[in-house]
Write a protein that binds this DNA or RNA. Structure first.
Lengths: 245, 245
DNA sequence: TTCTTCTGAGTACAGTGTTCGCATGGCTTG
DNA sequence: CAAGCCATGCGAACACTGTACTCAGAAGAA
C-alpha cells in the first residue's frame, strides 16, 4: 500500500480530507471575484461573507490576502482602471483626439461599473494604484507632447479627470437608482414628471428645461451633455496652449 | 388636589413621568443634528442610534419623520446646499465673475462638509431638493443673461457643476483620509514620499511632478489646481459664446 | 524526522438599519 | 366637559455587517 499518511488521528471520518484542491486563494482572484459581484449585484451586496462563499471559502479567510474591506475596495477600483486600454502605438495622435478618446473610455468604464460612483468619494483618486498611475503618466505625456509645460500638463489632466468623474458619477448614481427601482429611463422620466413639475413650479427655467427634454431619448441627451462639457474644456485648453506658444 | 390624572395603572412608580418636555422631534431638527454629527465625527459615525440619542430620543423614533437612512441623507445633502448664499442683489454681474464666485462657494462648502464626497455618488445630484433647484435656476439664469440659449445654459451649468464636484470630491476624500490618520498634509506628503517615489519609478513624469510639488504648500497647490481648471472651462465657454453671438 | 511558517476557518463581539407592536398623551369631536 | 382617535415615541427583536482571536492542519526547511 503506497498510501501511508500519518495516522495520528483517531478516526478517518473525523479527519478532514486532504487540502482543498482549489489552487488556494489569491489576492488577484479575490479582487476579480469582487468586481464580478459588484457588477452583478451592486455595492450593497458586497460583503466579506458573500464574497467568501462565492470563492468557496470562509469569510475570514479573505483577511489573509487583504487587510480590510477598504483596502479591498482600493484594489478593486484600481483593477477597473486597468481595463482602460491605452493605444499602444506611440504614433503621436493629436492631443485633443487622444484626450477625447480617453475621456470617453473612462466614462464608458464608469458606466459599466456604476458602483464606482459610490466609492470614488471615499477612495478619491486611488492614490498609488499602478493602473491609475500608468494612465496619468500617459495623459501627462500627451499634454507635454502638445506643448504644455509639465506642471500645466498635470493640471490639465486633473481637470479632465475631475470633469469626467464628476459628470459620470452623477450619471452612474442616476442609473443605479433606476436599476434599483426596476424602471427604464423613459418610464421614470414620465413618472417623475408630475413631481418634477410641481417642484419646479417657481423656477420657470427649470420647468422649460424639463419640457424640452421630455420628448428626447434620455440616453442621447446624456451623451450630448457629456460631449458639450468636454468640448468646452478642450477648447479652453486649446486657448491656453495657443497663448503660451 | 388639582392633580387627578387617571390612575388606571397599578403603581405610580411604574408609570412613566409626564411627556418629554422637549418640544418633540421634527424633521428639521433631525437633519440639523445630523449635519452637526457628520461635521464633527464623519460619515462612519452617522448611525440612527447615535443620532437618536443625540436628540434625546430613541433610535427608532426618527423613523416617524424620515423614511429611512437614505432619505435622511438626501435631506442632509440638500440642507448643506442651502448654505450656499446667493447674491440677492439682481444687479447683473458678469457671468464669468458670478460663476467663478459660485464655483468657489461650492468648493468651500464641500470642503467644509467633506463627508459629502462619500454620499454624492449615491445621491448623485439630489434630484429634486429645493435648495439645489434654486441654485440651478439661478445659475442657468446667469448663463441665459450672458447670451447662451436655454439648453446650452443647462449644459454649461452641468459642466461647471461636474468639474467642481469632481475636483473637490477628490480633495475632500484626501483630506478625510488625512484627518483619519491624524497627520497634517505636509507630514503626510513627506511620509508618503518614499512609497510614492518607489511606485512612480517607471513614470519619470509623475516622479518629476512629485518632486516639483515637494516644496510647495499643498493647500495652495490644490487651490491653484482648482482655479486652473476652472479658468480653462470658463475660457472654453467664452469661446463658445463669442462664436454663437 | 522535527520544527517553523503560512493559510483557512469557526466562533464571537459589538455594532448596524429597520419592523413590529404597544403605550402614551394631545387634539378633535360629540 | 367627556370620549375617542391618532400621531408620536420607544423597547425588543431580527437579520446582517466587519473583523479580532484562536486553532487546526499542511507545506517547506533543517
Amino acid at each position: 500500500m503506497p498510501i501511508d499518511q500519518q495516522q495520528t488521528i483517531p478516526s478517518v471520518w473525523t479527519r478532514p480530507r486532504g487540502r482543498r484542491e482549489q489552487p488556494a486563494l489569491s489576492r488577484e482572484q479575490i479582487v476579480a471575484e469582487a468586481v464580478q459581484l459588484l457588477d452583478s449585484e451592486g455595492i450593497d451586496a458586497l460583503s466579506m461573507r458573500k464574497l467568501g462563499t462565492r470563492l468557496g471559502a470562509g469569510a475570514t479567510s479573505l483577511y489573509r490576502h487583504v487587510a480590510n474591506k477598504d483596502e479591498l475596495i482600493e484594489l478593486v477600483v484600481d483593477e477597473v482602471y486597468g481595463e482602460l486600454d491605452e493605444p499602444d502605438t506611440d504614433k503621436p495622435a493629436h492631443w485633443r483626439d487622444a484626450t477625447t478618446l480617453r475621456a470617453h473610455n473612462l466614462r464608458a468604464m464608469i458606466l459599466k461599473h456604476p458602483w464606482i460612483a459610490s466609492v470614488l468619494g471615499e477612495v478619491g483618486v486611488a492614490y498609488l494604484g499602478p493602473n491609475l498611475m500608468r494612465l496619468s503618466d500617459r495623459m501627462i505625456a500627451t499634454f507635454e507632447a502638445a506643448g504644455f509645460p509639465l506642471d500645466e500638463s498635470d493640471h490639465a489632466v486633473r481637470t479632465v479627470f475631475a470633469y469626467v468623474t464628476g459628470m459620470t458619477t452623477s450619471e452612474a448614481a442616476w442609473l443605479t437608482m433606476l436599476a434599483r427601482s426596476g424602471q427604464t429611463e423613459q418610464d421614470w422620466v414620465e413618472r417623475l414628471w408630475p413631481a418634477a413639475e410641481e417642484a419646479a413650479q417657481s423656477y420657470p427655467r427649470l420647468q422649460k428645461g424639463y419640457a424640452d427634454k421630455r420628448g428626447k431619448d434620455p440616453r442621447t441627451s446624456r451623451d450630448e451633455n457629456f460631449v458639450y462639457g468636454l468640448e468646452r474644456i478642450l477648447d479652453g485648453l486649446e486657448v491656453r496652449l495657443s497663448k503660451t506658444a
